[in-house]
Design a protein around this nucleic acid. Structure first.
Lengths: 211, 211
DNA sequence: TTTAAAAACTAATACCTGTTAGTTTTTAAA
DNA sequence: TTTAAAAACTAACAGGTATTAGTTTTTAAA
């Protein structure tokens, strides 16, 4: 996560086939991953560095060889999520398709990230408020950018007659919230596959519950 | 809130027209109200008793004349919300109406509580995890009871052919989540009235976004 | 095997936490 | 005006917080 799928750079030394198992970047990543899980479970303020150290298998103080501060951990997680969302928006905006299709695609990716990275998404959704100073401002701006881009798609869909003429803000937030339970509820093996889950959500939001 | 609309009991002494402005119950209620606002804003773990005292206009220690502990504040808020939800469910279950109408009514009341008591609902939604021991178990049970009651209405609606044959759990959580943004977003004077808000949400969830 | 950097440790820092004890002030009825 | 209870206060507690400094161990290349 956060530096997703970053692979070991094969060294130019022939003697070294694999990088150290405990390289700086990997340990940092482990700390971020465990932090996301713990923050999701107990909240940022409810998680101590000693808790986190316990989970990582390291003294709290030792983690400072890999991270700058507790705040920096939160920042890394939050901006990984916001950057991912914004990239997805940018990709969809470039698509050559109907607005319905664009909304559907963006929503699908939105849900997909929740399934893939539930803990990080949860932290970005719930603990962003503990960001401070510039970082707080930047995060709010990023979120606003995503929301406005998403809203624009809905608005254009309505203007083109593809979507119901509902209040755009209400539609946007209803959609974005409607999928938030995924992060709380979904676990593989809940009796429903990720595909079925996506399809059901799409049906409800696009076609409604009533017959 | 929590002891909603409890009115001053007119004393049997004729000399006393009004109760003291700072009676024990009122001060306690003020503490609970300010706590709900603060917990919503900064989280339970992120709010100190000194923060709360500052907001109430009282030393932290002085509040212990009115409350038992910080945990008890959280319990009062959470159970006020869960009790309200469960009463609403019980009322709707007694109704003589179609399942669509029942689902709609329950959802309307659900949204109404969010509009009326956003801070308390927010705390019950986000900070319940800081409840401990019995209280945590009881709260989870109450939530489960509400969710199962709500799910039963949807299930019966599907069985009666009134609602789309979607996965009941997905429908339930999509609906319950869909309205959660109200607590984060809605403020009177946002350019949309509570009635319009309710109507728009109902339209999207019952009829869908697509035309 | 030597060497030096990286990553772990222990100990200590200054500060913040919820809560209690004891005291003073406020309130409201006698 | 007296009295007693209620509600505020100050001071202190024991323990938790993130973080730093200094030291030892581990790692991996020379």
């Amino acid at each position: 996560m956060y530096v997703k799928h970053q692979r070991k750079t094969t060294s130019n030394s022939q003697h070294q086939l694999f990088m150290a198992k405990r390289s700086k970047v990997n340990q940092r990543q482990r700390i971020l991953d465990e932090a996301a899980k713990l923050f999701k479970e107990k909240g940022f303020a409810g998680t101590s560095m000693r808790d986190l150290g316990g989970e990582v298998g390291m003294e709290a103080a030792s983690m400072y060889n890999h991270i700058k501060s507790k705040d920096e951990i939160l920042e890394s997680i939050c901006f990984y999520v916001s950057n991912t969302y914004i990239s997805q928006l940018a990709e969809v905006e470039k698509m050559d398709a109907s607005y319905t299709k664009k909304v559907e695609t963006l929503l699908r990716r939105h849900v997909y990230l929740m399934i893939e990275d539930g803990a990080a998404v949860s932290v970005a959704n719930n603990d962003w408020k503990y960001l401070t100073g510039d970082k707080l401002i930047q995060f709010k701006e990023a979120r606003k950018r995503y929301e406005q881009g998403f809203a624009a798609l809905i608005e254009q869909g309505i203007a083109a007659g593809e979507l119901q003429p509902v209040n755009v803000s209400v539609a946007l937030f209803t959609i974005l919230s409607a999928v938030r339970w995924v992060e709380l509820w979904y676990r593989p093996g809940r009796g429903i596959s990720a595909e079925d889950l996506e399809r059901n959500i799409m049906t409800i939001l696009l076609n409604g519950l009533a017959k």
